[in-house]
């Protein structure tokens, strides 16, 4: 009846081949998937003054902040190389990249700990409280 029977396999063997790229989260939607000259145009133009990172993209000023993955967490980029033709079939994804921190960019505003992406980093710690085993006593 539904596609809930199909699963998506996460191939862990791929981790050893995964690259460790620089990862940036941008404050705009770029309607494109695929290769991009990131180091030519972007990372090379990043200014880091007294830990205030700035750059521009398409003529707009961005301000950035590096964030680390929460403790005991790893950044993974999952890639699906072949899409099955029906939603009844099982799928497979591999780990194409691994990262431990990334830089997020705000449009014009200075990053703060109020930014949703930073606040969201508190989730794993809280998830542990909600989902960890309770005392048996």
């Amino acid at each position: 009846m539904s596609s809930n029977g199909s699963v998506t396999l996460l191939q862990l063997g791929s981790v050893v081949q995964a690259d460790k790229p620089q990862v940036h989260l941008l404050p705009c939607e770029i309607e494109q998937d695929g290769p991009a000259e990131v180091s030519r145009y972007f990372t090379s133009a990043v200014k880091d003054r007294k830990h205030e990172m700035s750059v521009s993209f398409r003529g707009r000023g961005l301000k950035g902040q590096e964030v680390s993955c929460p403790q005991a967490y790893t950044g993974l980029v999952l890639k699906e190389d072949h899409k099955p033709t029906t939603d009844q079939e099982d799928r497979t994804v591999r780990v194409s990249s691994v990262f431990h921190h990334f830089t997020y960019w705000n449009l014009e505003t200075q990053p703060t700990s109020d930014d949703a992406v930073v606040m969201a980093m508190a989730w794993p710690e809280l998830a542990e409280a909600i989902h960890g085993s309770v005392d048996d006593r």
Partner: peptide, 18 residues
């Protein structure tokens, strides 16, 4: 012109030409 980045900072992106 680069399809993703457009141009280097040398170009005024705010100009109608760009």
């Amino acid at each position: 012109l680069d399809p993703v980045f457009g141009y280097p900072q040398f170009v005024r992106f705010s100009w109608s030409t760009a």
